[in-house]
């Protein structure tokens, strides 16, 4: 069993992921954002390495969440590299 989650990659993480978005069937064992990164890293070690960096922020819907937040209800998770505006 699992759930469909839309993963979004912004900035240089899009280059690391090879696409701005992917839809994944995430297994139920993935409870937190941290778990999700570990799960992604099993298939894509390079991307996992980029996502595990503490400078990468994680958003569920339109809110930035901590890495240990429960994401079981989130249909959309975005990975955000360091911000650079202005």
């Amino acid at each position: 069993m699992g759930r469909t989650v839309r993963l979004q990659f912004y900035g240089r993480l899009r280059d690391a992921a090879g696409a701005p978005m992917r839809e994944s069937i995430v297994p139920d064992v993935v409870r937190t954002a941290e778990d999700l990164i570990a799960w992604i890293a099993r298939d894509d070690a390079m991307l996992g390495e980029a996502l595990v960096m503490p400078s990468v922020k994680i958003a569920a819907g339109d809110a930035i969440i901590p890495r240990d937040a429960d994401i079981r209800q989130a249909a959309e998770i975005a990975f955000l590299p360091p911000f650079s505006g202005g």
Binding site: Y10, R12, K57, A59, P81, P82, F83, S84, G85, G86
Partner: peptide
């Protein structure tokens, strides 16, 4: 806006692209 708002900046030149980090 410079480092706490979700924006990403890329410089594109004839020689290639690069992401600008804060």
């Amino acid at each position: 806006l410079k480092s706490a708002a979700p924006f990403w900046k890329r410089e594109c030149r004839a020689q290639g692209d690069r992401w600008i980090e804060p």
